[in-house]
Design a protein around this nucleic acid. Structure first.
Lengths: 247, 247
DNA sequence: TGTCGGTATTAACTTTTGTTAGAAATTCAT
DNA sequence: ATGAATTTCTAACAAAAGTTAATACCGACA
């Protein structure tokens, strides 16, 4: 069940089979299926335990009083959410699904056992949380400094590389189940401008996007064009090897 | 020495005098003075231990190849930086000073002792890290969704409230040692537009800004005008009481 | 006290991005 | 398959924000 998470953590450190077994067990305790475009957690809720995305895409988001919405993060298979969030009390944002999602709800007590008994694993989970924060910082840079073209290209690079880190890419292709409206709310542009900018990325031959399938034709070229530097994902050497086309 | 940090943490929980003493001792072990507009940590460095800002303002920032710069966070007196950052390996961003800064460098070993022997304190430091992440999320919303006027007003509200939480405001006034260029790099606008927007905030009577001194004349009105909701700072009731003018 | 360098301010103009509205395409449920 | 509902795509126009460049201000310091 926790295959994606394990795969991700192993970019950072190698886990013992005991570690992996414990993680796998924890992720089987209590699973939940949520349908597409539904909320998992609402702003104001009191979170407890940790949610692990087993399958599907979700996002964190915040809504302003007048309806404007900002997507703050994407949660992909293998991503954990709300590490220790209970310390903060009420959630200051919501989490909703993009596609149908399967979730493992890991209770606080299980989480405690997991980290207490497994030093390596505990460190890996800490790494996971720090990478999440690093991604958030990079998004600030992306929205604050980059042009529309760069912002969009950067987002696509990040999603592709993160999916690749958990084995969810096929060669240069991956799923992209986002509507243009969702992309717009992610990078702070209007839907119309996202559409224009997608056309531009297509017309220069960097990507294809039909249905819910994204293909990045020349990843290295795209990276250069949008100044995508994968360092912030802290995936180690493999994460940086973006030029290879592993069939 | 750690008075600001202690003051901040006590918004979350009350610390024993033993906790406070330990924190204070830790912050005296090794202090460093850095002059204004200088770097504390460079992208690529291997961090170790934790830096505590004792005095002055610093910021996290990232620079793009072509010189564009985004300020990602402000570090105010009482703020900790690079909690566990050594796990990530190389720093993916830099930290520089805004004003002259006095820093306490808390070595990893001291940090371990501090968290191992003081459960309450340990939890408070976890809270601190989570609030830092929450601020980063709010910045994503700020830059992504708000107008120039709102962005700037929101930033000023946040800085004021954070300074207030450590006792560094005098009534409706606080220090604001930022140049307009720095503000611009913080909220993703040009210097010229920051200037225009500051004029606007002044002309509607919400703020005064002369020299390095900011006065927010009508905090509640400003909050409403820019949709500033201090929840994300998780300061508890006091943090929300922004209407009072405690001389 | 006057000069220098950075900072703030302003104006004129350009570019980017947003808005509105409609048409075309696609997806989904039945 | 068929109609409804999203979603994508376009065009025309409006607004926001960026650029450049010149001037004014201000504080540090010789």
């Amino acid at each position: 069940m926790a295959e994606f998470l394990i795969r991700k953590l192993e970019h950072f450190t190698s886990l013992s089979s005991d570690d992996k077994h414990a993680l796998d067990q924890a992720s089987r305790q209590r699973t939940r299926r949520i349908r597409s475009r539904d909320d998992i957690v609402h702003e104001g809720d009191l979170p407890q335990g940790v949610n692990l995305i087993l399958d599907g895409w979700a996002c964190r988001y915040k809504t302003l009083e007048d309806g404007r919405r900002q997507i703050i993060a994407y949660l992909l298979p293998g991503d954990l959410c709300d590490h220790n969030a209970s310390i903060l009390g009420e959630m200051d944002h919501s989490i909703g699904t993009v596609t149908a999602v399967t979730l493992a709800e890991i209770p606080p007590e299980t989480m405690r056992q997991l980290t207490a008994g497994h030093a390596r694993l505990s460190q890996a989970l800490c790494w996971e949380a720090l990478v999440t924060a690093a991604i958030q910082r990079e998004w600030t840079v992306n929205i604050g400094q980059r042009t529309a073209f760069e912002r969009l290209g950067h987002l696509l690079c990040e999603l592709y590389v993160r999916l690749r880190a958990v084995g969810l890419t096929q060669g240069t292709t991956c799923e992209l189940p986002l509507t243009q409206a969702e992309i717009a709310d992610t990078i702070g542009l209007s839907v119309v401008h996202v559409n224009r900018t997608l056309q531009e990325l297509r017309s220069v031959g960097l990507i294809s996007l039909r249905g819910r399938e994204l293909t990045i034709h020349r990843l290295e070229a795209l990276q250069r064009a949008v100044q995508f530097n994968p360092n912030y994902l802290h995936l180690g050497r493999e994460g940086r090897h973006l030029d290879s086309n592993e069939a």
